[in-house]
Write a protein that binds this DNA or RNA. Structure first.
Length: 344
DNA sequence: CTGTGCTGTACTCACCAAGT
DNA sequence: ACTTGGTGAGTACAGCACAG
């Protein structure tokens, strides 16, 4: 671990504050005038040179100011940053907005995503809870035509999933009977347990002789499989990212558009966040897998009964106002966890 | 081409601790 | 008490990059 004096840390902190505010390389004169009035520019320059040797700063060209590296930001986040409490206005806005609307969990998460993006002025990403972690409330089958059946699955938390399955021409009466069987048998167990139960039943004795049970189970398994591929990510405020001056280069812009399209990789990164509780900041090489190593993501898991079920994050340029975004993400994770707690 | 703003380097000064 | 050497900080200056 790097050892910096308090003075080094003060200067690194000042450079980051100024760079976050302006997006321009920071020179010694500005620092000396604005942040470190007891030190001359020359003194500041000597320290900046030391910080550059340590890999915490870099100079885009020989007569420019310094820009913090990803390593510099990382050090700042670990050792220097002083987090502010989330402003009261933001807190009450979140509380107010999150308590409105329907109880549907998708609706709740969509609103959370919107608020994260609005308040942070960056893109927000929310990974929805995995369907398998939800408790089953009911399932319905609706005949659409001779080959298609619509499946409507409702979780106990109010999450509604729709999908279409293809199957033989069954009457609506039969479909209702199958649904009743599943609804009675599996109410209040998790979808994962339900699927395991159905698979077990499939090979059981009863299934061999009772064609109704057999068909109900078979349709149930097909229906649950149909939900597996549902999109499970909300992304909002992409424009905030695209409008960054850092993306003036069209090639770079294309990379970022591709990164957003590649949802699988974003999901993998967000899943990693769940491994460690609390708010984490991913930057530099952490985001290399999605080609966004000059960007940064402040992310946290959210929980139901202390079990991580999904994650959320704010994605923006590496020069982000972390002292504001970190408390924001932490607060939103807590609000979501509390909401899920109530709805079990 | 010029002005501006930044840098690194050279040199100087002040202060402090250790040696004579 | 005086000298010496090290360290930190200041000023001055030349050179470089960039915008107009």
């Amino acid at each position: 671990m790097l050892q910096l004096t308090d003075r080094d840390k003060t200067i690194l902190g000042a450079i980051i504050l100024e760079y976050v505010a302006t997006g321009e390389p920071v020179g010694s004169r500005i620092l000396s005038r604005k942040y470190l009035t007891t030190l001359s520019p020359a003194t500041v320059r000597n320290i900046m040179a030391d910080l550059e040797d340590l890999g915490l700063l870099y100079q885009p060209h020989v007569s420019a100011g310094r820009i913090p590296t990803a390593e510099g930001f990382r050090f700042y986040l670990n050792d220097i940053i002083e987090l502010r409490a989330l402003p009261r206005g933001d807190k009450s806005l979140i509380t107010r907005q999150m308590s409105q609307g329907t109880g549907d969990i998708r609706d709740v998460l969509r609103r959370a995503s919107y608020l994260l993006s609005q308040i942070s002025q960056n893109a927000s990403i929310i990974l929805l809870p995995k369907l398998s972690t939800f408790f089953f409330r009911r399932i319905d089958f609706v005949r659409l035509d001779e080959s298609r059946i619509m499946v409507i699955l409702v979780s106990k938390a109010g999450m509604v999933y729709n999908s279409i399955v293809y199957g033989e021409d069954l009457s609506q009466d039969k479909l209702n009977t199958y649904a009743n069987y599943l609804n009675e048998k599996y109410i209040n167990v998790t979808i994962k347990k339900m699927r395991d139960g159905l698979l077990k039943e499939m090979t059981g004795e009863k299934t061999k002789f009772d064609s109704l049970v057999r068909d109900a189970i078979s349709l149930g398994v097909t229906a649950l499989d149909g939900f597996e591929d549902q999109p499970d990510l909300f992304i909002q405020g992409k424009d905030a990212v695209f409008n960054n001056p850092e993306l003036m280069d069209l090639g770079r812009l294309r990379d970022i558009v591709n990164a957003f399209e590649d949802r699988g990789r974003i999901v993998r990164i967000l899943n990693k966040v769940l491994e460690i509780p609390g708010v984490r900041v991913l930057l530099g090489e952490d985001l290399e897998p999605i080609g966004m190593d000059d960007f940064s993501m402040v992310a946290s898991g959210y929980y139901r009964k202390d079990v991580p079920v999904g994650s959320l994050g704010v994605l923006g340029p590496i020069r982000m106002d972390y002292s504001r975004v970190i408390p924001l993400v932490g607060y939103m994770a807590k609000v979501l966890s509390d909401l899920l707690e109530e709805e079990v």
